[in-house]
């Protein structure tokens, strides 16, 4: 992550991503949304990520976009225009397609900047930048960072719990109701474990003088300079052009 834009201060990157997302909320014009979605794709290489990898990382957004199109084809109130498909409850007309397409595109334009930001920003750097550049309380920034580490351990813990339950003779046997009950039980076990570990971690952090009211030293100074301002201003410019012009 040493490319020109990847190196920018994380809060500047966060600001830029938010600017694009907010712009996507403000319009439903398909061309404007397409331009907004294209901005993170085109600039991704400057952040050290190929456009293809960005698209791959953003798959949940695309899955949700397909969901929007499908549900609007089923439930949309405005079903005017030319009829394309009429099959059972599915009625796809030109106006349905236009509305659904715009919403789907908005979702993609909203998500891509966020995905690009998280993919190219180190969590520790983000915490440092939040504390140093926007004066976020250290208690919040580094507390969240410690919690983020614990979240990574949860996946492994979930697998352990699932296997332990199978060993006890408990499985869903393909029954969705039992699966839901089993999942709720496993999730509860996970939660109990997470709270215990979180409490112990908080105690260990206390013992090391965290949040004791002293001013903290900054071990990793983070710079917020003209290139970061340029990134922010550049994004504001790029985001407003499609809004105003289209």
């Amino acid at each position: 992550m040493t490319t020109l834009l990847a190196r920018r201060a994380p809060v500047a990157k966060l600001g830029a991503a938010l600017t694009l997302s907010v712009a996507a909320v403000l319009t439903l014009d398909p061309v404007a949304l397409a331009v907004l979605a294209a901005i993170p794709l085109v600039t991704a290489p400057l952040f050290g990520l190929s456009p293809l990898r960005l698209l791959r990382r953003a798959w949940p957004a695309f899955a949700a976009a397909v969901g929007i199109i499908l549900s609007l084809a089923l439930f949309s109130a405005d079903r005017g225009g030319t009829v394309y498909v009429h099959f059972g409850p599915f009625l796809v007309t030109s106006s349905v397609l236009a509305t659904a397409g715009a919403y789907a595109l908005r979702l993609v334009a909203l998500s891509l900047p966020a995905v690009l930001f998280t993919a190219t920003t180190d969590p520790t750097d983000l915490a440092d930048s939040l504390v140093q550049h926007v004066r976020a309380p250290a208690r919040f920034a580094y507390g969240a960072l410690a919690a983020y580490r614990l979240v990574g351990l949860l996946t492994e813990e979930y697998q352990q719990l699932t296997m332990a339950r199978r060993a006890r003779g408990i499985d869903s046997g393909g029954n969705p109701l039992r699966w839901a009950k089993l999942f709720a039980g496993t999730a509860f076990g996970l939660l109990v474990g997470a709270i215990r570990r979180g409490t112990r971690l908080a105690q260990a952090m206390d013992a090391r003088g965290f949040d004791a009211g002293l001013p903290r030293t900054i071990a990793r100074p983070s710079r917020f300079g003209p290139p970061d301002v340029a990134l922010l201003l550049g994004t504001v410019f790029l985001a407003t052009v499609p809004l105003l012009a289209l």
Partner: peptide, 29 residues
């Protein structure tokens, strides 16, 4: 005082080794 508990997973705060050692020093200014 400085204290070390049993489970390292419930004591590590940072994602990089050096930052972990620096964390306590930062807190104590």
């Amino acid at each position: 005082p400085g204290i070390v508990f049993q489970d390292p997973q419930a004591q590590l705060v940072m994602t990089r080794a050096g930052d972990e050692v620096a964390f306590g020093l930062e807190n104590l200014a």
